[in-house]
Amino acid sequence: MNKMMKPAQLFASATILAASTLLPIHSAFAEESAATPATAPAATTNSEIHTPPPKPAAAPTHNPYGLEALWREGDIVAKSTLFILVLMSIGTWYIMVTKFIQQAKIKRQGKEAEAKFWEAASIDSAAETLAEESAYRFIAEKGINSTKKHGGNLLERIDFNTWVTISIQRAIDKIQSHLSGGLAFLATVGSTAPFVGLFGTVWGIYHALTAIGISGQASIDKVAGPVGEALIMTAIGLAVAVPAVLGYNWLTRRNKAVLDNVRTFGSDLHTVLLSGEIKNDSTKNNEIK
């Protein structure tokens, strides 16, 4: 009986030993299987971190509060005011460019007269050395004609000196009037353009506030847009007035310099006509023909 129990005891001991040995291995496999689902979300989190951010939305290309909106939504008064300012600006730049060209032309004519007129042998030939459109030739011809036409029943009552002086001065005044043409327009634009723009602003704000009151919405987006559009008229008025004022002052100073040369030429011509002779480089005196 004891011999039969010994194998059973050995089998039980082996079973217990195997169970105690395999228990840690089973626990390790259980821990690894439990950890595997826990690490899966971590991989997902890393993929989410490296995802590129969304692109910003593109800015709208249409500006609802600009000059285009002002013209599109403005009434006949606002459009007329803006049209008047545009005409003022065009006229200002046209006068500034044309007057600059005219002054430069007369300056060149003055240099030509200084180089050719006083080198001639006689007064008549001296006038012919200048171009037909020259302002200096116009003055010379007026002075020469005054010496030839002095006489008669009425002109005899005026002494020769006074008659020649009046003729030359009239020619100079005509040139001065020709140079000053358009400057009054620049002065008018410079003084009135800001007020024209201000009128457009006041009219635009009035209509903007009226529309806001009718709609009953006084939020900042409803107020800033229409009022800002109305203020554009003031900016346009200033943009028209400033060049006009600067151009007026600039052209006036240039006119003064040009007319000083013209008056100097007229004074010298008056002296020569009264003396009855003109000297050339050889200091030869020639009588007036």
Rank of each mutant, 00 (worst) to 15 (best):
A40K: 15
L82Y: 12
L10V: 09
E156T: 13
E128I: 07
A42L: 15
I232A: 06
G213Y: 08
A58Q: 11
S80R: 09
A244H: 09
A127W: 06
A211E: 02
K222F: 07
I236S: 10
A28I: 15
A193C: 03
A35V: 13
G225T: 02
T210N: 08
A230G: 02
E156H: 08
N46P: 08
K116D: 03
V202G: 04
T81R: 10
N249L: 09
Y94F: 12
G197Y: 05
A58H: 02
Q169W: 08
K111Y: 06
L246R: 09
D124E: 13
H26W: 15
I49E: 06
S20T: 13
G151F: 05
A38I: 15
A131C: 01
A19G: 15
T210I: 11
A69H: 04
L82W: 08
A126Q: 00
W203A: 00
F138S: 04
G237L: 06
V245P: 13
Q102P: 03
H207Y: 06
S13I: 11
G216H: 07
E31N: 15
T81A: 14
T36C: 13
T36A: 15
T39A: 14
E132S: 10
I205C: 04
E112A: 10
Y136P: 01
S125M: 14
S215P: 03
G197P: 12
T252Q: 11
S191H: 08
A12P: 00
I101W: 10
I168W: 05
L209H: 03
P60K: 13
A30L: 15
G66V: 03
A239Q: 06
I95C: 02
N249V: 07
A57T: 09
R170K: 15
F185N: 07
S180T: 09
V223I: 14
P7K: 09
I90K: 02
G228H: 12
N145A: 12
I220A: 14
L82V: 11
L209Q: 07
I25H: 12
L209S: 06
S125T: 14
G143L: 06
G190K: 10
T61Q: 14
P64A: 07
P54S: 09
G66D: 05
K279G: 00
A135Y: 05
K79E: 04
N2I: 15
F117I: 01
P243M: 01
M1N: 08
V189H: 14
N249D: 04
K222L: 01
M4N: 14
G152P: 06
T162F: 05
G182A: 01
R157D: 09
